[in-house]
Design a protein around this nucleic acid. Sequence first.
DNA 1: CAAGAATCGAGAACGATTCTCATTTTCAAT
DNA 2: ATTGAAAATGAGAATCGTTCTCGATTCTTG
Lengths: 146, 146
Amino acid sequence: MTTSSVDQQIRSRLGDAGVRYTTGRQRVTSALVASDGPRSAAELQTQLGSAIPLSSLYRSLAVMASAGVLAPHHGSQGVTRYELAEWLSGHHHHLVCIDCGSVDDIELPDALEATLHELVDTVADEGHFVALGHALEVEGRCKACK
Amino acid sequence: MTTSSVDQQIRSRLGDAGVRYTTGRQRVTSALVASDGPRSAAELQTQLGSAIPLSSLYRSLAVMASAGVLAPHHGSQGVTRYELAEWLSGHHHHLVCIDCGSVDDIELPDALEATLHELVDTVADEGHFVALGHALEVEGRCKACK
DNA sequence: CAAGAATCGAGAACGATTCTCATTTTCAAT
DNA sequence: ATTGAAAATGAGAATCGTTCTCGATTCTTG
Ligand SMILES: [Mn+2]
Ligand SMILES: [Mn+2]
Ligand SMILES: [Zn+2]
Ligand SMILES: [Zn+2]
């Protein structure tokens, strides 16, 4: 996934939302495109070399999330990590480290994803609600904690 | 699931951990047994009629979680909700309301759960890690928000 | 070049959670 | 039953991720 194609889609979506795609927000995008999992404000600040003040970073993340460009992931210690929304990154799931809380993306083979989709729909039908999405978290240990 | 049988198992497990099963902790247990999803410290305090100070409640939750009796669930707004560990409550999954963040337990029919297990094991094998657990969150709207 | 809108940045404020420490309760040994 | 050690309690302070405030700055558009 190249930064530039994602950039175009984000620029367009933010434009529709009446929100500017400033250089700070573009930096957030490229940091997230380069990541293999969701990132917190603090992690992004490190990754970006302190180029953006925390208060601005938090605001950009909030703005981009409410425009549907980023998706939040709530982890341990009250830390929220953001990633590109699935319409930008593609649908995928997460491997969460039970020791340090880090999160890595995992993509299911198409056959398995299809199975999972059916499964979720069946569960929703039986529970008389509409499944608007699903998230499978596989719990294990990351390389650093193994 | 009766409170008393769970109580016995918890008493035993806490005993092994060298931790006392005080009346405050027993109240936490009965509140969680009566719940249909994970509960935060604040929610438990309300549910328990302010019978336990928040600082004690937080400590009991932490102690019981690190003894493996409770499991934390990290939700929006930095709120952590706890539920009985799966060896006490049985393995199950969650329906998370995308509007208010409330969480309800859902149990998969055995056939679906078996399918999901296989699926997770396959993914883990392919990613060269060990799946120690899994959590499926189905996203939808709760009755209150529908 | 304005003027208005949106954004920025520094610091204050907030809120969930954790920590501190003096007091109280529990448990085991006598 | 008494006692001393260990564990738990409770009130309040402290912490830390996050959000808010507001004056300064940057965009956009005519
Ligand atoms: Mn992801
Ligand atoms: Mn549950
Ligand atoms: Zn780890
Ligand atoms: Zn709801």
